[in-house]
Every structure is written in C-alpha cells, then in structure tokens.
Write a protein that binds this DNA or RNA. Sequence first.
DNA 1: GTAAGTAGGAACTTTTAAGTAACCAGTTAG
DNA 2: CTAACTGGTTACTTAAAAGTTCCTACTTAC
Lengths: 127, 127
Amino acid sequence: MAQRMPRTPDISVAKCSYSLVLDMISSKWVVLVIYAMEDGPVRYGEFSRRIEGISKKMLTQTLRQLERDGLIERDIHPTVPPAVEYRLTALGESLLPFMRQLKTWAAANLPLVEAARTRFDAQSLAE
Amino acid sequence: MAQRMPRTPDISVAKCSYSLVLDMISSKWVVLVIYAMEDGPVRYGEFSRRIEGISKKMLTQTLRQLERDGLIERDIHPTVPPAVEYRLTALGESLLPFMRQLKTWAAANLPLVEAARTRFDAQSLAE
DNA sequence: GTAAGTAGGAACTTTTAAGTAACCAGTTAG
DNA sequence: CTAACTGGTTACTTAAAAGTTCCTACTTAC
C-alpha cells in the first residue's frame, strides 16, 4: 500500500525534456530541411526545388528557427547574384544518429501502426 | 559536374518516414502520456492527476490516438466504479529506447541550444 | 522593356491544434 | 437531497501553425 500515490502532478510540459526537444523538430518542415543537408551544404533555392510543396515563407521561417537553435549556420557569399549556403553545425549533426534511429524504427514498425489503425477504424465503425 | 541537380523534388512530407513518425508523437501531450506509463499500467484518473494541466478532453483524445496507432491498450475492469487501465503494447514499448536517447541528447545539448538562442536574439536586437 | 533568376520580407487568410465549460450514467457517503 | 467519485462526450472558443499573395533590389538574357 501507499505505493506511488502522487497528490501533486509530477509530469509537466514545461519541464519535460522530451517536449522541449520535440518542440525543436516537430514542425512540419524541420526534419525535411535537416534531411536535405545530411550530405553537405545546401543553398536556399535548392531547398525550394528539392522539398516538395514548401513555400518561401515556410522555408525562411524554418531556416531561421534552426539557425536560432544553433543547429545550422548561414554562409553568405557576396557574389553577383548573392549565394547563401546553409549547413549543419556540430550540434545539428549530433541529431543525425537520433534521426537515423527514427528511420530504422519507422521501417520496422510503421506497417504495424498502419495495421493497428485499420483494425481500430474497422472496429469503431462496427459499433 | 552534373553532380546532384534534382529538377524534381525528391523530399516530401507524405513519404518521409521522419514526418510520419513525428506525426504520431509530436502532439503536445503524447510523450507525457507515454512517459507516465513507463513503469506500468496507469488509470485514467491517475493520468489526470500526474500530468500537469491536461484536460479531460485532451487526455481522452491523446489516449484514443495512441490506442488507434497500436501503442497502448485499454483494459476495462467492470468493477463498481468502473476502472480503466492503460498500458504500453510491445509496439509502444519499442519506442522507449528512442525516447531515452532523446532524453540523453537533451541533457547534453539543451544548454547549448539555450546559449545559441540567447546569442541569436542578442544579435537580432543589435542590428 | 520584360521575364527570370538570386534570397528573402510583410500582410493577410485559412486550417489545425488546443483549451473551456457543461453534461452524461451509475454509485456511495453524508 | 446533494456532493463527489468513476471515465468519459459534446459543443463552442481561442490560439498557434501553415499557406497565399504580393513586394523588394539587383543582374543577366531576350
């Protein structure tokens, strides 16, 4: 008895490190932008072309957020049409192993998730 | 030359497994709910008390989503006040190592992120 | 002169996520 | 009789995220 009876909350959004990290990477475009830089620097226009459906506003906004968090760096080459290159910092690269694990998990388990959803939806309909 | 010149987009939200997995876990309460179940089944009311600020609506919604994705299971005990227990499935538990890695990363790197933000904001103000 | 490329910024609208409040059935305690 | 507990549902409102459109300034090609 008297085993784990928390009268006051012990889990909070503001303190949970899961939430803090997820806030950094969980917006719609962040992972795609990081993914694009996996094997080297990428220019603004190249992101635009490679990432399907991203608007200039969302691209700029996503890049600024990543720069603010210290995950990427901006190199401005003052050439005739100015060229701006973005690349991962050491901090940004330290997220890659974690993203690769995510990918491995997805490959193995997303089909199971799909199946669970189908089951759940079928059952909901039946009731 | 002719090295990596994608004329058509090769990165898309709909296909990227990062995005698909993040969709599952990136809502505000999901990680907190999973976290609460880390060391055993938890009842509805216990979630309410332990997770600071969660409303019944968001709790129910989060639990239903996790159940639909096959990450948790519901056990209804038809006792006098009905008791409903939630626990992680094998699929749900398979996410735990990944979440622990996230926590490790956070412990090591969140201070660096904080510092980067402070620098960035100071510089933005100065310009 | 005009269209297209460079890398954005600002204003505005739409869509989605989240929060609030009231209510339900059933039982027990006062 | 009323309040409180169990585990929710429903309707409505608010706040945040994302999308759309038009604009900048400079250069080159047509």
